[in-house]
Amino acid sequence: MSISGRVTLNDVAAASGVSRATVSFVLNDDPRQTISAATRDRVKQAARDLGYVPHGVARALREGSSRVVVLNIEAGMEGAYSRSFVRGLDSELAAHNHVLLVRHGHHTPQSIQEVLDAIAPRAIIRFGETYLTGHELEDVGGGWRDGLAAHSALQLRHLVEHGHTHVAVALPDTESPLAAARLKFTGHAAQNLNIPVPDSFVTPLDRAACAEAVEALLAGAPEVTAIAGFNDDVALRVLMALRDLGRGIPDEIAVIGFDDNGYGAYATPSLTTIHVDAQAHGRLRARLALGLDTSGLRPPPARVVARESV
């Protein structure tokens, strides 16, 4: 083994009894070389036994880029959907011998260029890019078919199907890059459902302040009978505020979440929400990033997780 402790081609060659060049041809699956099946098997077994890992820099030089795909997630976009999306993206990339690097926070052109200079990634993906740039109908999830627009419409439609025509949208107290897109989609959905476009209000994290915000909303818009949360975190704050205000749920005010973070099932009353199979979206995005066939990977539609709050 080399002084650095990393298994090299020379180590694999010595263990399998062939030349270093033969090992390279076998492990790189060079179609121009005629090497017997027995020799190929022997080399591959030696590589597995020794734990040989191809040298990333050499591969990057050969391919013109590394086998790293970078995902940038802006602050305020983390949640159950993004975590599930990452799992699907990572799994699909690994199946094609690529590695995922996830970067959280604000990303400037300079920081992105530094990543390009340091590792020459195969691709850089910006989470939610189509929505952040106003190209939502180009969403790989299908936009109004099974993307964020469709998910927002499903949330509102479920309330309407339960008799709620005056709805308010509860937003987080921290700026979210997706807030504007969500409100736009909800507004379009309301027009399609022939109900008033919902007003929106902010739900502070502080318990007392959140109750005050909900109370102010209901005082100013007494016709509201349902509140749609930007996500489950926000919807759970609304549930808490309504209980503090002595409001009946769902008899007086119905509440629906979004993103199904798993905690809604433990609330009182339990939270109705929207569940999205984000792993399928992640797998699809991985194949698009690698230029692979995406047939058979259409994400399934979002679904309502019906509980007690609606």
Rank of each mutant, 00 (worst) to 15 (best):
Y52L: 02
P54K: 05
H55M: 00
H55K: 09
G56T: 09
V57N: 12
R59W: 05
A60W: 09
L61D: 10
L61N: 08
E63R: 11
S65T: 07
R67A: 06
V69S: 01
I73M: 01
A75R: 02
M77T: 08
E78I: 05
G79R: 09
Y81G: 02
S82F: 07
S84V: 04
V86P: 00
D90I: 07
S91W: 04
E92F: 07
L93V: 12
A95N: 11
H96Y: 13
N97V: 06
L100H: 04
L101C: 08
V102T: 15
H104V: 05
H104I: 05
H106W: 11
H107L: 09
T108R: 12
P109N: 11
S111I: 06
I112W: 01
I112D: 08
Q113S: 09
Q113F: 03
V115C: 07
V115E: 06
A118L: 14
A123H: 13
I125W: 04
I125H: 05
G128H: 10
E129Y: 14
T130R: 05
T130G: 01
G134K: 04
L137N: 10
E138I: 02
G141F: 12
R145P: 00
D146Q: 15
G147Y: 03
G147L: 09
A150W: 14
H151N: 15
A153H: 13
L154D: 07
Q155L: 15
Q155I: 10
L156G: 07
L156D: 03
R157F: 00
R157N: 11
L159H: 10
L159N: 08
E161C: 04
